[in-house]
Design a protein around this nucleic acid. Structure first.
Lengths: 195, 195
DNA sequence: CCTACCGATCGGTAGG
DNA sequence: CCTACCGATCGGTAGG
C-alpha cells in the first residue's frame, strides 16, 4: 500500500539532514537551515527529533550497522577471495549510501560521549575484520609479509575515499569500480602473482 | 640571533589555530577557544589577523604550495620511478605537517570565494601531475591499462589518509611507511612483475 | 506544526 | 593587548 511506502516526517528530516551535513558539515549546519529545506519552522523539528546531535547519531550508527551486516555475509574460503569480497561489499555499501557515508566518515567526531566511544569501538572491531583476513593471508603465504594494520589502513582508506569522487552517473559503473579496487589493491599484496 | 628564531605572535596564532581546527574542526572552533589557548582575550587576536577565515586560508594555501614545491623536485626518468618518488615525497610532506595536513584535507570547504575556487583549481593541477605519470606508465606498457583518474584517486587517498593514523612515535618510521606505501600501491599497478 | 521567546555564544569593532 | 560592547545567530523550550 502506498501509504506504507511514504517516508515519515522523521525519515524525511533524517534524509535531508544527511545531505545538509554532508554539504556544509555538521557544525556549520543550523537547525534553521534544515527546517528551511523542509519548509517548516525550526521549532517544529523538535516534535520529531530530540536534538541536533540525535540526528547525527542516527546517521552514524545506522551506517556502522550497515557496514557490519554487509561484511558478515562474506563467506569465501581463502584470504584472497575473502579480501576481494570484503573490498567489494564495503564499497557497495558506500556507493549505495553516498551521503550517509560522507557524514559517517567526516562528522562522527562531533558526537558526544558515550556515543563517540561506542562508535570508535565499532570502527575498531570492523577494522579487525579486515586485519584478520590480511593476517591469515600472510600466515598462509598468499600475501607478502607486511605490517597488518598498515595494509588494512591503506586498503580501507582507498575505498573510503571513493565517497568523495564516486558519482553514479560517472563513466565507471559501481561493479566496475568494485572490481578495479579489489584488483588494484590485492594484486599489490599478492606474493606469487604470475608465478 | 635568538630573537630571529622566536616565532612571531602571528605565527603562534596560526600554529595553535592549526591544532585547534584539526581537533575540533573549523566551524566548531571559536575565536574565544583560540584566544584561551594563547592566554589572551579574543578581541586581541584581531591585532594580528584580519579574520577567522584568513587563518584557514593561510593554512590551506601554505600546505598546497608545500605539496607543489615537493613534487616539482621529482626528476626520475621512468614512470615507475617517478610514481615511487612522487608517492614518497607526498607522504613526506604530510608526515612533516600532520596538523596542517588534516586541516588541508578536512576543512578547505569552509573557505569562501574566490579562495575556494582557487584552492580547488590547485588541487586539480596537483592531481594532474599524478595522472600524467600514470598516463605515461600505461602508454609505455609499464602499468596495466586502467582508468587513469581512478588509479590516481585510489593512490592519493591511501597516502592522504595516513594523516589520520600516522604517529611519529609509532613502530614504523616515516621512511618505512613511504617505502611500504609505494611498494603496495605500485606493485598493484605494474603489469610485468616477476616476469 | 506555529508563534513567541530564552540564554548562550558567535565573529568582530571602537577606542584606548 | 585590554575593556566594553555590537548585531546576528545558535540550539532549544513553552504553550497552544
Amino acid at each position: 500500500m502506498e501509504i506504507l511506502e511514504r517516508p515519515t516526517r522523521k525519515q524525511q528530516i533524517e534524509e535531508r539532514a544527511t545531505m545538509l551535513f554532508k554539504t556544509k558539515g555538521y557544525a556549520a549546519s543550523s537547525m534553521r537551515d534544515l527546517a528551511q529545506i523542509l519548509g517548516i519552522e525550526a521549532a517544529s523539528l523538535y516534535s520529531h527529533i530530540k536534538s541536533k546531535e540525535e540526528i547525527l547519531q542516527k546517521i552514524c550508527f545506522k551506517m556502522a550497522n550497515a557496514f557490519f551486516l554487509a561484511i558478515e555475509q562474506v563467506n569465501e574460503t581463502t584470504p584472497e577471495q575473502q579480501l576481494e569480497a570484503a573490498i567489494k561489499v564495503h564499497f557497495k555499501m558506500i556507493s549505495e549510501n553516498i551521503d550517509a557515508s560522507a557524514v559517517f566518515f567526516n562528522e562522527w567526531r562531533h558526537m558526544s560521549e558515550p556515543y563517540l566511544s561506542e562508535f570508535l569501538a565499532m570502527r575498531t572491531r570492523y577494522e579487525q575484520f579486515f586485519m584478520e583476513i590480511i593476517h591469515q593471508g600472510i600466515k598462509q603465504g598468499q600475501f607478502r609479509v607486511i605490517d597488518e594494520k598498515f595494509a588494512m589502513m591503506t586498503i580501507l582508506s582507498s575505498i573510503n575515499w571513493t565517497h568523495q569522487w564516486y558519482r553514479p552517473t560517472g563513466k565507471m559503473s559501481m561493479d566496475e569500480i568494485g572490481d578495479h579496487l579489489s584488483e588494484l589493491l590485492i594484486n599489490g599484496l599478492i606474493k606469487t602473482r604470475n608465478k
